[in-house]
């Protein structure tokens, strides 16, 4: 088994060129939104909008401007190339009822498109809203961390295409060292809000695609405390169990008591 591999996405150097999106679409030959006739989102310069079955990379534009200020002097852009997090504890893999979602030798999470039957359990299980149905295969799809390229010793298409090295590919230990150094540098330059999201093991055991962020996770559309769906397994099982016992008791009392009643009233129908 190879060492765990992943992405380190440094959002401070992302210029929003979307080369990663294009490289991903091209390598994986993904269909275009609405056959290339996309509509304009109307609320952002970003028209990709979200990650889903045909968008495995998505450069998120966070336009922090005060609309009441006509000069827009105080605004800033935050740009982040979003992707599947390849969680160390993956909610999608956990619930997948066909075993289509597997963990590879690179510690990444991959959906097999010939096994998935499109039940969509993984979509509601993913804490980051990464997965969607691909309209061509009618199966759930997402970033594979270019499993096919990794297999032959190439780096993923997106990080290869990134002109500013905002997306970096490598072993997790290597990337983590690099990321920590970058955070240290930024802190030295006075950018003390810089921090790493998912590099350690605090968020769902760790994210194999982790990020350097400059604002709260929510601003980037990331949950502060993502969880596995199975956290509700025991609470829900106990609830259902209590229900089964109560309903069983009610059945026992009602259907049995009646016999007693009738017995008292000389149950002539007893056979």
């Amino acid at each position: 088994m190879a060492e765990p591999m992943g992405f380190f996405t440094d959002t401070t150097v992302c210029i929003g060129c979307k080369a990663c999106e294009i490289a991903c679409k091209q390598w994986n030959q993904l269909p275009a939104t609405n056959g290339g006739q996309n509509t304009i989102s109307g609320v952002s310069y970003d028209n990709t909008r979200q990650l889903d079955g045909i968008h495995w990379r998505h450069v998120r534009f966070i336009e922090q401007f005060d609309t009441r200020d006509p000069n827009r002097t105080d605004g800033r852009w935050l740009l982040m190339s979003d992707v599947c997090k390849h969680c160390v504890q993956a909610g999608c893999l956990e619930v997948c009822p066909t075993g289509a979602i597997v963990r590879t030798e690179f510690d990444t999470v991959v959906i097999q498109s010939d096994v998935c039957n499109g039940c969509r359990a993984c979509i509601s299980a993913c804490p980051f809203g990464v997965i969607g149905i691909n309209p061509v295969s009618h199966t759930a799809q997402k970033c594979t961390l270019c499993y096919d390229r990794l297999k032959v010793g190439m780096e993923p298409a997106c990080s290869k295409a990134c002109p500013t090295d905002s997306i970096q590919f490598g072993t997790i230990s290597q990337l983590r060292d690099r990321a920590q150094k970058r955070v240290g540098d930024l802190h030295q330059q006075g950018q003390t809000e810089a921090y790493l999201y998912g590099a350690d093991d605090k968020i769902v055991g760790g994210l194999n695609s982790f990020f350097l962020l400059m604002d709260k996770p929510e601003v980037y559309g990331l949950p502060k405390d993502p969880q596995l769906p199975s956290r509700n397994l025991a609470p829900s099982g106990i609830g259902s169990g209590i229900g089964a016992v109560l309903v069983g008791l009610l059945g026992l009392l009602n259907f049995r008591k009646r016999r007693m009643d009738r017995f008292a009233a000389q149950g002539h129908r007893e056979s």
Partner: peptide, 30 residues
């Protein structure tokens, strides 16, 4: 079926917890 919905990360379904019990399975069962 209630458990199926609660063992997700979706709003309402995964939020229906009280005193450490998720109520969706119990509700659907009754």
């Amino acid at each position: 079926t209630g458990m199926l919905l609660s063992v997700t990360n979706r709003p309402v379904w995964a939020n229906m917890n009280l005193f450490g019990i998720n109520l969706l399975g119990l509700l659907f069962l009754a």
